[in-house]
């Protein structure tokens, strides 16, 4: 028996919007720790890892570990029927092939339940080793989204370089080139507007902008984004989900032949 009650139901809608461009079908894993997911895009270039910790739910009952295969577009279709202020409860019985999403309006005058068929998904779980990153950049998530969007109108790939001067995003295309440098800036009114660069050593890596633009669909989940870079490793783009967990995207770099 599984029953997860999330008062801030809109958060689940945002989580789905943050993943469904990248991944079609995925297994949601439910355990005492929380509600989690790990999935790669179809070309195995990017990986998304989601964790919503059990403590973040108003009610969390998961009698035994359960893996539920869902089509993210279908799940999103159902969640879009929930009001933004609705409380969402996810329910599943042991051994059934469906999951129920229950939506309750804040004053309890409307209660809806949507039952969705589950799928058998053959997914591979990957071990992500802890790594020391050469550079970690924290910046406003809206600024990162703007940079990725702007650069993708010029080129297909971005070189992200971190030096003691700051973090530089560069691209080149048929019509020309573009460079955007963000310097460390801690002297802001609000901490979420700061750009903070922790650099052990300079690093420069090339990535496909198409994937980074997909990652920025998570912008509504967090005011800030953390970008962790090391040569020879996928970049980690992390959006913290307040009081609940995170959504992390890993993107394999482009490698010079």
């Amino acid at each position: 028996m599984l029953e997860l009650r999330l008062v801030q139901g809109s958060l689940l809608k945002k989580v789905l919007d943050a993943m469904r461009e990248l991944v079609n079908d995925a297994n949601f894993d439910c355990s005492a720790t929380g509600f989690s997911l790990q999935a790669m895009d179809s070309s195995h270039v990017a990986l998304v890892a989601l964790l919503l910790r059990s403590e973040g739910f108003e009610h969390y009952r998961c009698d035994r570990n359960l893996s539920m295969g869902m089509n993210l577009n279908n799940m999103s279709k159902m969640l879009r029927c929930a009001g933004n202020d609705d409380i969402i409860t996810i329910k599943a019985d042991d051994g059934t092939d469906s999951v129920t999403f229950m939506f309750e309006s804040p004053n309890q005058d409307k209660i809806a339940d949507f039952e969705m068929k589950l799928m058998d998904i053959d997914s591979e779980h990957l071990g992500i080793p802890d790594a020391e990153y050469q550079a970690i950049v924290r910046m406003p998530s809206s600024e990162f989204a703007r940079i990725c969007k702007d650069l993708s109108s010029i080129g297909d790939t971005v070189v992200i370089s971190v030096t003691k001067e700051g973090v530089k995003f560069s691209t080149a295309g048929d019509i020309g080139t573009a460079n955007i440098v963000c310097r460390q800036n801690k002297t802001v009114d609000k901490p979420e507007e700061a750009t903070i660069i922790e650099m052990q050593e300079p690093v420069s890596l090339t990535f496909a902008l198409r994937y980074l633009n997909s990652f920025t669909k998570a912008t509504p989940l967090s005011d800030t984004v953390t970008i962790s870079l090391s040569s020879e490793l996928p970049v980690v783009v992390e959006y913290k989900i307040a009081e609940m967990g995170y959504i992390r995207y890993y993107l394999a770099p482009k490698i010079e032949e």
Partner: peptide, 14 residues
């Protein structure tokens, strides 16, 4: 031209 890397060459299946 740079070649696109693959996640499976960095992270192993468990």
């Amino acid at each position: 031209d740079a070649k696109q890397g693959n996640i499976l060459s960095f992270f192993k299946k468990i």
